[in-house]
Write a protein that binds this DNA or RNA. Sequence first.
DNA 1: AACTAATTGCAAATAATTCTCAATCGCATT
DNA 2: AATGCGATTGAGAATTATTTGCAATTAGTT
Lengths: 144, 144
Amino acid sequence: MQEHEKIFENFLKIKDLKLTKPRKIILNTVFATHEHFSVDELYDQIRKKHKDVSRATIYRTIPLLVESDLIKQSLRCLAKDHYEHTYGHDRHFHLICEKCGKIIEVESKKAENILNKLAKIHNFDIKEYNVGAKGICKNCRKKI
Amino acid sequence: MQEHEKIFENFLKIKDLKLTKPRKIILNTVFATHEHFSVDELYDQIRKKHKDVSRATIYRTIPLLVESDLIKQSLRCLAKDHYEHTYGHDRHFHLICEKCGKIIEVESKKAENILNKLAKIHNFDIKEYNVGAKGICKNCRKKI
DNA sequence: AACTAATTGCAAATAATTCTCAATCGCATT
DNA sequence: AATGCGATTGAGAATTATTTGCAATTAGTT
Ligand SMILES: [Mn+2]
Ligand SMILES: [Mn+2]
Ligand SMILES: [Zn+2]
Ligand SMILES: [Zn+2]
């Protein structure tokens, strides 16, 4: 059993919920790649192998995955909301190319520290970061 | 005529569009306060005085205001998208309290610089920043 | 195997946004 | 001030994204 399965199962157990087949399929699809995904993309991906998992269950499972800290909502500056699994990955920011959609992930303890300091000044307790920028990537700039 | 009206009119003129009555009403409502607003909140605000402006026109005008750099989409970590007028205001980040909804605006050239440097490393051209954090504010923490 | 509460898929409901279109507006020209 | 014409509008229909109600099914327990 994979680490993320254990974590999810424990999380569910505490809430008297069960790691059912559909939930396991959703979880494992999410952890099969490190792509950022919309609900629809996830649905399509899952449907390739499992014709019996419904959109409703995906919509019902995502909040559980978020609450258990296995995935996060990220890239909220695109048209659709996107998620990504974050368990096993360090916190990072996103540079999103408006032309080609490319996503560059960037880590920066420095930036984190600054945000933390700013929060401290205001006596604010940060639970979740939401940092990114939209623009044009290297390759797309060349083309202009 | 206010500065923002002039800017909007110029912007529109270049595109062979007109600063019509509804557009003027929407623009001026947006610039009447520095609140962050959802489309619905803006609609309600406008409707207090102008029963004849439709949702459709608001939805059609917002992209024009964004394109003319008078307003920006911000607070993309709440359920609904929110906008704010940014013309006349420095760039800032948002700390959003999950309990009471309070929004703290924070300026930081340092944070901007770091993001810019990170972008530079990746040869990425930032067009728009999207920086914030969710958490618990000072007052709400006391209450726990 | 029987029991029970949680879970599921489906389809209907809701919410947010976009689109269609006929009527109107704004502005330039007569 | 009347005319012409493309841009604009509001109303409501259409679309898209998400949530919900419910009867049938499942997982775990006795
Ligand atoms: Mn990422
Ligand atoms: Mn702001
Ligand atoms: Zn690109
Ligand atoms: Zn608060």
